[in-house]
Nucleic acid binder design. Structure first.
Length: 493
RNA sequence: GCCCCCAUCGUCUAGAGGCCUAGGACACCUCGUUUUCACUGAGGCAACAGGGAUUCGAAUUCCCUUGGGGGUACCA
């Protein structure tokens, strides 16, 4: 039987890191087994679902390289299918109409809570007589459809990551609602919007899903869904409940944690490959302990028996390291197009010719942790990034840092800079040998240590005492006619 | 509250009874390299939650305790 898996996000927000990670595991499993990866949009909650989020999720999955084989299917296009399923359950007396009002339900829960008992529906309308039903209808009540759950029933399944998981029917909260109340004025036999558990099961059956791979937060739903599979008389798929990604504080990652949308990560300068790589590492490990791998490489070795059971805390340090590995591995030609949007977003005028830009990418590439860098308020971390490191190459006049000012103020430094300026003024172009020669000449001429010359030059050119290779920096700056003005400006201090 | 799940260095993890004086990675520290920072190389620090039981032998099996997470909707 061919493997068929699915990712089923609900479009109630931008693509979330948790959803993306579930998508990664599904993708890996599908590709490991030469199966199909299906995308289904679960938009049965019309209140919260928005088309823009659907688009956002599609774009995000594409950006991450998590291409799907079928879909996207929208549950809102499949309502008739769910209606048929509900009808079948009704016909087989496995489901019934429940007229309990929300006020009555609230009261019920309040009493249960007061008793210290678990809130649950008491199945009060499970066996209504036709007369009782007629009374509720006459009173204008719109029923929900509830699926019968046998309290005595023990539900268990073999989970691909957890082994045997069992659930008692009585812990499922009573007969479950599978369809909302129909709109007022709808016919007596109409049913309202289907609810999550019903729609999922109907779809997974219809789409011939062979393994359901989803987050651990769905375990309780699985018990309910197994009952629905049985009620519908079909084969139950295999389930794999993956550990959750926890916030650094150890809680389920929520919107409150600031950075949860995949786009937040993109904006901060993380690349897609690093993100999927890191998400894979959060819960799975390769047999050979390899940590940097492409999706394809991971897929070749992926299996659920190497997926951890415990939740994994999200760690920015490790993500930064993984991202840096990807950035360092990229050629300047690959890196440049990634860098340009960030430079432009930072307001840099990216009008230099391509060879100059490539040279800059070559220079800063090995230092990069992210494409952006600097202090991120959302994470509280500072990273070495492309915007930060290359700032001095794009801004007209660097502001002198404290240490740079101190360096420039030292005895003899002005003389050194004057010599450098004079010599450089006669060189319209400068290459590596030329730059080295220049520094050697000035060092000899001034009778100082080379380090002093270099530190002074760096301070004058960049306003900093630290930074990427000085020779290369000088060459790049001089090509853009920025070196001489900066020496001039430094002399004027 | 109730139900379910989980538990190895600060973090992600390897480990499926003897190969474990517990391995790797990130972070951190030291040294080398570098004018500097970063990269990179070498080294270091650092954990089997606690208690019972089984066994010749337990990080690995079982039980209890503790701790953590998830769930408990006419959300998904």
């Amino acid at each position: 039987m061919t493997v068929r898996v699915r990712i089923a996000p609900s479009p109630t927000g931008n693509l979330h890191i948790g959803t993306a990670r579930t998508a990664v595991f599904n993708w890996l499993y599908a590709h490991r087994h030469g199966g199909q990866f299906i995308l289904r949009i679960e938009d049965t909650d019309v209140e919260r679902s928005k088309a823009e989020y659907t688009q956002n999720i599609l774009d995000g999955l594409k950006w991450l390289g998590l291409n799907w084989d079928e879909g996207p299917f929208a549950q809102s296009d499949r309502l008739e299918l769910y209606r048929q399923g509900i009808q079948k359950l009704l016909d087989n007396k496995l489901a019934y109409r429940c007229y309990t009002s929300s006020v009555e339900l609230d009261e019920l829960r309040a009493t249960q809570e007061a008793r210290g008992a678990a809130p649950r529906y008491d199945n009060r309308h499970r066996n209504l007589t036709p007369e009782q039903e007629a009374e509720f209808v006459a009173a204008g009540r719109q029923p929900v459809i509830r699926f019968k759950i046998d309290d005595q029933r023990e539900i268990s399944w073999i989970d691909a990551v957890r082994g045997k998981v069992s659930w008692q029917g009585s812990d499922l909260g009573g007969d479950m609602v599978i369809a909302r109340a129909a709109q007022d004025g709808a016919g007596q036999n109409s049913v309202g919007q289907p609810l999550y558990n019903l729609a999922v099961v109907i779809d997974d059956i219809d789409m011939k899903i062979t393994q359901v791979i989803r987050g651990e937060d769905h375990i309780a739903n699985t018990a309910k869904q197994i009952l629905l599979y049985e009620g519908l008389g079909v084969t139950i798929p295999e389930f794999s409940h993956t550990p959750l990604i926890l916030s650094p504080a150890g809680k389920k990652l929520s919107k409150r944690d600031g950075v949860t949308s995949i786009w937040d990560f993109k904006d901060m300068g993380y690349v897609a490959g690093a993100l999927t790589n890191y998400m894979t590492l959060l819960g799975w490990s390769a047999p050979d302990a390899q940590e940097i791998f492409s999706l394809d490489e991971a897929a070749a070795q992926f299996s659920f028996d190497r997926v951890n059971k415990a939740g994994a805390k999200f760690d920015w340090d490790k993500l930064n390291w993984v991202n840096s590995q990807y950035l360092h591995k990229m050629t300047p030609e690959e890196l440049l197009p990634e860098l340009i949007p960030f430079w432009e977003a930072a307001g840099y005028k990216v009008d230099a010719d391509r060879s100059w830009l490539l040279r800059l990418a070559t220079l800063i590439g090995p230092s990069l942790e992210t494409l952006k860098g600097g202090f991120e308020e959302r994470t509280g971390l500072t990273t070495q990034g492309g915007v930060e490191i290359s700032r001095t190459f794009f801004t007209a006049n660097p502001t002198l840092g404290e240490e740079a000012t101190a360096q420039l103020g030292q005895d003899g430094v002005k003389d050194i800079l004057t010599s450098l300026q004079t010599a450089l003024a006669e060189m319209s172009e400068i290459d590596e040998d030329g730059a080295k020669g220049l520094l050697d000449r000035v060092t000899k001429e001034r009778g100082v240590k080379k380090g002093v010359v270099m530190r002074s030059l760096r301070a004058a050119l960049t306003g900093e005492v630290n930074g990427p290779d000085l020779i290369q920096s000088l060459i790049l700056l001089h090509q853009r006619n920025l070196a001489l003005p900066r020496l001039q400006a430094a002399l004027a201090v």
